[in-house]
Amino acid sequence: MALTILVQHSNRELREHAAAVLEAAGMAVRQASDGTQGLAALETAPVDVILTGINMPQLDGFGFIEAVRGRDRLRAIPILVMAVSATPELKTRARNAGAAGWLPHPLDPARLVETVRIVTA
């Protein structure tokens, strides 16, 4: 059965690029433009992995990660952060919020697919 991935990011081009790469690798993809839409999407159907941006309107990536980790039925879903800035402080904050990993922009297609597969193994 194909993995289902939620890709959420306020940058439509980045979000659609990540979705296209994952779909080409045989994964099913759902998209959201911010954390509020992402949480709503998680209420309608389960996913295997979440990819999230950080700087998003309504509910940013850190707030989203904390909200997911605060819900028992969602707590175990691996979350990967996609962001341009990869400062140690941001990575630590993401890890402390509950992220499983970090994917820098621009996304490397092979690394994206490999990382998703690793966190679901």
Rank of each mutant, 00 (worst) to 15 (best):
Asn96Leu: 15
Thr87Asp: 13
Ala94Asn: 07
Val21Lys: 07
Ile79Gln: 05
Pro78Leu: 07
Glu23Trp: 01
Gln8Asp: 03
Val49Asp: 01
Gly70Asn: 11
Gly63Ile: 09
Arg73Phe: 02
Glu89Met: 09
Pro46Gly: 13
Gln37Asn: 05
Gly35Asn: 09
Phe62Trp: 04
Leu42Arg: 05
Arg93Gln: 13
Ala67Arg: 15
Arg69Met: 09
Gly70Tyr: 13
Gly98Asn: 07
Leu90His: 10
Glu23Cys: 11
Ile77Arg: 08
Gln31Asn: 06
Ala97Ser: 15
Arg93Lys: 15
Gly70Met: 10
Asn96Glu: 15
Ala94Tyr: 06
Gly70Ala: 13
Gly26Tyr: 10
Pro57Cys: 11
Ala25Leu: 09
Thr87Leu: 10
Thr52Phe: 04
Ala86Gly: 15
Phe64Asn: 02
Arg30Phe: 02
Leu59Cys: 11
Arg15Tyr: 08
Val47Met: 05
Arg93Glu: 10
Ala32Arg: 05
Thr36Pro: 00
Leu90Tyr: 11
Leu80Pro: 03
Thr44Asp: 06
Gly38Asn: 10
Thr52Ser: 15
Thr52His: 06
Leu74Arg: 05
Arg15Phe: 09
Glu23Tyr: 04
Ile79Pro: 00
Gly38Gln: 06
Thr36Ser: 14
Lys91Val: 14
Leu90Thr: 03
Asn96Cys: 07
Gly26Glu: 08
Gly70Glu: 08
Met56Glu: 09
Leu42Trp: 09
Ser33Asp: 11
Ala41Gln: 12
Glu66His: 08
Ala18Arg: 03
Asn55Trp: 13
Ala100Lys: 14
Gly63Asn: 06
Arg15Met: 12
Ala76Phe: 01
Glu13Asp: 14
Ala40Trp: 05
Asn96Ile: 01
Glu13Phe: 13
Thr44Trp: 07
Thr92Glu: 14
Arg73Gly: 02
Pro57Phe: 09
Ala97Thr: 08
Val81Ser: 05
Asp60Glu: 08
Ala86Lys: 08
Ala76Met: 06
Ala76Gly: 06
Leu39Met: 14
Gly98Ile: 03
Pro88Trp: 09
Glu43Phe: 00
Met27Val: 00
Glu43Tyr: 01
Arg30Thr: 06
Gln8Pro: 02
Ala76His: 15
Phe62Arg: 01
Gln8Ala: 02
Gly35Val: 07
Asp72Leu: 11
Ala76Cys: 07
Leu22Ile: 04
Ser85Arg: 12
Ala20Thr: 13
Thr52Leu: 08
Val49His: 03
His17Met: 12
Met82Ser: 07
Arg95Thr: 10
Ala19Gln: 05
Arg15Trp: 10
Ser85Cys: 02
Leu90Asn: 11
Met27Asp: 04
Leu51Gly: 09
Ala83Pro: 02
Phe64Tyr: 12
Met27His: 10
Leu59Lys: 13
Ile54Thr: 03
Asn96Trp: 06
Ala25Pro: 02
Pro78Val: 03
Met56Cys: 10
Phe64Val: 04
Val84Lys: 12
Ala97Cys: 12
Ala86Thr: 13
Val49Arg: 03
Leu51Lys: 00
Ala40Lys: 13
Asp48Ala: 06
Lys91Trp: 04
Ala25Met: 06
Leu14Ala: 15
Glu89Gln: 14
Gly98Leu: 04
Pro46Ile: 00
Lys91Phe: 03
Phe64Trp: 09
Ala83Ile: 03
Ile77Ala: 01
Arg12His: 12
Val68His: 01
Leu14Val: 15
Phe62Gln: 02
Ala28Trp: 07
Ala67His: 09
Asn55Thr: 08
Asp72Asn: 10
Ile50Ala: 00
